[in-house]
Amino acid sequence: MNGLERHTIAVLVDNEPGILARVVGLFSGRGYNIESLTVAEVDRRNSLSRITIVTSGTRMIIEQIKAQLQRLVPVHKVLDLTDEGPFVEREMMLIKVEGKGDVRIEALRLADIFRARVVDSTIESFVFELTGSAEKLNAFIALMEPLGLVEISRTGAVAISRGTTSL
């Protein structure tokens, strides 16, 4: 009952000024965790944005988070993907690795295994683009570290339910 659970929550909101501040303020004001948060408009015609929040807390806190989100006036729908059956979760990362000689070759070889794409290269550096679960991204980072990792930029997770159900 008191164990921490990690949940991915999708929130459909009016794309209006201040909505992100409202959601973020709710989390900071009430002391909830945010592991990651992504947002972008998904319905231009109705001016709706989708926020994907990865959070963790006890079952009671997770229920609170959903109820509190639902209470925000510009929020249309709140869906707990973790609870609502199978879903796909993906994150994108750009990662810069610096190095020469063998190190470069090793980095390229590992990138290939992870299906990371090279999106920029100089004689001394690569920028890889990698998409996948957070664990996959973390594993890749761990491998790049000894090879000259210098910079990481991650999007945070986006997620969607499997099958025909929709938000």
Binding site: P17, G18, A21, R22, G25, G29, L72, V73, P74
Partner: peptide, 14 residues
């Protein structure tokens, strides 16, 4: 004002 009152209102508008 909307920033300051966001946490102390049910909702606000600019």
């Amino acid at each position: 004002t909307t920033g300051i009152t966001r946490p102390c209102t049910k909702h606000n508008y600019l």
